[in-house]
Every structure is written in C-alpha cells, then in structure tokens.
Simulated assay, not measured.
Amino acid sequence: MTLMFLVGAVVCAGSTVICWVMTALRNHPADSSIISLAAVELYLLFYGVYAAVRQMGFAASIAGEGWEFWGYVLTALLLPVGVFVWAMVDRTRWSNLVMGFVGPVVFVMVYRMEEIWWGSVL
C-alpha cells in the first residue's frame, strides 16, 4: 500500500462520515459536506499530479493499461464536481446523502487505480 492510497482512504472515509451525519442533522446541503467534498477533489487533483510526475519520471511504469488508469483518474476527478453541481440544484437533505456516497465510490476507484499501477495493492 502506498502512502497516497492511505491518505485517500482517510479523506474518503472522513467525507463519508461528515456527509452522512449532516444528512441526519440538516434539511439542506451543509457547508461541512461541501467542504468534505472539496477535500476529496483536492486529494484527487494531488493524486493526478503525483501520478503524472511518477509516470514522467519513469520511476515506476504502469502494470496495467495506461488508458484505463487515466480514465479512472479523469472520471474520479469529475465525480465530486458533478455531485456538487447536483447538490446545488437539489437543495434538500438528500443532497448531503448523495455527497456522502462520493467517498466510498472514489475510494474504490483509487483502489482500482493503485491496482492498475502496481499490479496489486496489498
């Protein structure tokens, strides 16, 4: 497991917990849910830059397909942005819940990205 994967797991778990708690407490999108979503996006931006530098440096080549890895990166980057836009349109309690599912989905995507890069995570 890489440090980037562990950081991602913590960020995604934290975002999920915050959003689910805010679903119970708020009738509208909570600022803390939006900030936690931004933290996931920031992590993904950092992960993308890290992956690009790692690939350009030829320190470690991708074990799997490059198009698949970068497809996951781009999709993961678009997910928090799309959910944020949706939450701003549908300003109900349930937007917090939908934002809460970004964390687990991004975690699975990062797990898969690490699997493609290294061949396995564990």
Rank of each mutant, 00 (worst) to 15 (best):
R91I: 10
M113A: 02
M4C: 07
L44M: 12
G48H: 01
L44C: 00
G103T: 03
L45T: 11
R26M: 09
A30D: 04
V121Y: 08
S95H: 03
S33L: 03
P104K: 04
Y50K: 03
L45M: 15
A24W: 11
Y111A: 14
L37Y: 00
I62M: 07
V81F: 12
E68G: 07
Y111W: 12
G66P: 07
W20Y: 14
A13D: 07
S33P: 00
F101H: 05
S36L: 09
A9C: 14
L42W: 02
A38T: 11
A24G: 10
Q55E: 12
A60G: 13
A30Y: 04
W86C: 07
V73D: 01
M22W: 07
V98L: 08
W118D: 01
T75S: 10
E65H: 15
L78N: 09
V81N: 01
C19E: 03
V108S: 11
I35M: 06
S33F: 05
M113H: 04
R26G: 02
L25M: 14
V17E: 05
G48Q: 00
V110H: 04
W94V: 11
G103K: 01
G14Y: 05
W70R: 02
Y111I: 03
Y72G: 01
V106Q: 00
V81D: 05
A52E: 13
M113F: 05
L37T: 15
A13M: 13
L74Q: 08
I34N: 07
L42Y: 12
L44E: 01
A59P: 08
A38E: 11
M99I: 09
V105K: 08
C19M: 09
L45I: 11
W20G: 06
L6Q: 12
Y72M: 11
Y50G: 04
L3M: 11
L3F: 11
I116Y: 06
F58S: 15
V49S: 05
A30Q: 04
M22S: 13
Y43W: 11
E115D: 14
G66D: 08
V73Q: 05
G103C: 00
M4H: 09
A52S: 15
T23Y: 14
G119N: 10
E114T: 04
I35W: 13
V85A: 12
E114W: 08
Y47T: 03
S61E: 14
A13E: 09
H28L: 11
G71W: 06
M56G: 15
L6K: 13
V110S: 00
F69S: 04
L77H: 00
L79T: 01
G119F: 04
G8C: 00
N96D: 05
V85M: 09
G100Q: 08
A76M: 04
E115T: 13
S120E: 08
D90P: 04
W67R: 14
G66E: 12
F84T: 13
S61D: 13
I116L: 15
L77S: 02
P80Q: 00
A9R: 10
L122G: 14
S120K: 09
L44A: 01
V89L: 14
V21P: 01
W86F: 09
M109L: 11
A60R: 15
P80C: 06
V81W: 07
V21Q: 08
W67H: 12
W117M: 04
